[in-house]
Simulated scan of single mutants.
Amino acid sequence: MKHRWSGAGIGVVIALALLIAFGGIRYDGFLGSYNILTVLRYNSMFALVGLGMCFVIMTGGIDLSVGSVAAMASVVSAYLSPYGLLPGLLGGVGAGLVAGTLSGLIITKLKILPFIATLAVMLAASGTGLLLANNQSVAVSYDSAFTTLGQGNLLAAFKPEWIDGDNAGWMGTALGLFFNFPTPAWIALVAYIVGSVVLNARPFGRHVLAVGGGEEASRLMGLPTDRTVFAVYLISGGLAGLAGVILAAQFGAGQPIEGIGWELFAIASVVVGGTLLTGGKGSVFTTLAGVLLLGLIFTILNFENGMGWISLSAYWQSVVRGAFLLVVVILQSRLARTAPA
C-alpha cells in the first residue's frame, strides 16, 4: 500500500520534461503562451476525469462510464446555462454524482464487477444524453456567465497593463501566463491539490490504497471497504460531471457524443502515471503528468503535420494512445514480476 512516486511515476515526469524540451527546440511557438494556455485549457477536462479514474483504479476497480457521463452532464448543464453559472455547474456535477452513485450502489450492494457495472452505467448515460439532447448539440446561453467556466481566465481582470507591452521581458511573459491561466486549468489544479491531500494526508487515502491492496484483507481489518469503494465511484462520477460542465462552457454547446474514448484517455493517463491497474499503489500528481504527456504527444503530432514532413489524421491519435498504453502496461507487468516481495 504505497502512495509514493514509483519508478514509472518518476519516469513519466522525466518523459514529460524531455518532450517539452524537444517541442521547444523543434517547433516555433511550441513554448509560446498561446500554445501553453491552449493545451492547459483543453486538457483540463481530461485531467478531471483522470483524477477520478486514479482513485477508482487505486482500489483495483475501473470506471468505463466517465466519457458518457461527461457528455450527458454537458447536455444537462447546457440546458441550465440560461439560469446562470451556478445552476449550470450544479446541474452538470449533479448529473455526474447520480451516475457515480448508481455505479457505486451496483458494485457494493449487488456485488457486480466494476467492469460490468460501469459498462451498464456508460450505456445508460450515453442513451440519456442523446435522449435529452434529441441527438443533437444543445447550445449554451451566452447571456449568463456560464461560459466563463470554460472560456474565461480567472485572474485576467487583475492583470497589469505593462505585462502586454513590447518590453515586458521574461518576467512579463511569466506573469502573463499566470494572469491568463485558464479558469478550467485553475479548477483542475485545485482538484488535484485536494486529491493529493486526501490521498496522502487523510484516512480515506489509506483506505483506498488498502482496498486496492486486498479488499478481503481490508474488510477483515475492519476498514469501511464498501463505503470506500462507493466513495471513489461517487468522486469519479462527480469529476466526470464537472468535466462535462467545462466541455459545454468551453465549446458553447452540450455535446452528447463528445465523450467517446475519454475513459481510455483517462485509463491511459493513470497507468502511464505509474498507478497499478491491480490497485494498491498510485499517485495523484503523476497522473496529472500522464495527462499532460499524452496531451503533448497529440499536440506534437499536430505541429508535425503543420511542418509538412508527415500527414497524420486525427484517427492516429487513437492508434498512438492505444500503443502507448500497451507499452506501459507491458512494462508495469514486467516490473511487477521482478520487484522484490
Rank of each mutant, 00 (worst) to 15 (best):
A71T: 07
G7Q: 12
V270L: 00
V12Q: 04
V232C: 11
S196E: 00
V140G: 11
L89H: 07
L119Y: 12
E304T: 15
G274N: 07
E258Y: 15
A339N: 05
G282Q: 00
D226M: 11
V138L: 03
A185V: 02
L131V: 14
T286K: 00
A17I: 15
S236D: 00
I330Q: 04
A168P: 02
L19R: 01
G61L: 05
V232D: 04
L301P: 03
G172S: 05
I57K: 01
G238M: 04
V198T: 00
L335Q: 13
T118S: 01
K159C: 03
V194A: 07
Y142P: 02
L209W: 12
W5P: 02
G150Y: 02
P224M: 13
L102P: 01
I310G: 07
I257K: 08
A248P: 05
A139F: 14
V328F: 10
T59P: 08
M122R: 13
S44A: 12
G176R: 00
I297W: 12
S141V: 13
I116E: 08
L97Q: 06
L97S: 08
W316I: 08
L325Q: 00
E216D: 14
G29E: 06
M122C: 06
V272H: 06
F285L: 13
T275F: 01
V12N: 06
T278W: 06
A156G: 01
L276R: 15
L97F: 09
V194N: 03
L223H: 04
V197Y: 07
G24M: 03
A268L: 04
Q136E: 13
R202H: 14
L189W: 05
L105N: 09
L31R: 08
Y27C: 04
V39A: 11
S333Q: 14
A99R: 05
A95N: 06
D143N: 14
L113S: 14
S144L: 04
L132T: 10
A78Q: 05
F115N: 10
G261K: 12
G96T: 10
G169H: 06
Q332S: 09
V190Y: 09
R321I: 09
A99D: 08
A191W: 02
L64P: 03
F30A: 05
A125H: 05
A21S: 11
L209F: 08
L331Y: 10
S269Q: 02
V284L: 06
G308Q: 08
T338L: 13
A8L: 14
L19H: 01
I257C: 09
Q255I: 15
L97N: 04
E258K: 14
T287E: 05
N200I: 06
G52T: 08
W5V: 14
T225P: 14
G23I: 09
A268V: 00
V211S: 04
S333M: 12
V284Y: 00
P203I: 02
A339Q: 11
F179Y: 13
L292R: 05
G205T: 04
G213T: 03
G213V: 03
G61S: 10
M72Y: 10
F146I: 00
R41F: 03
L335H: 12
G84I: 11
R219Y: 12
G67E: 07
F46V: 12
Q136W: 03
E215Q: 15
A249G: 00
T225S: 12
I116Y: 11
S68P: 04
V138C: 02
K109W: 11
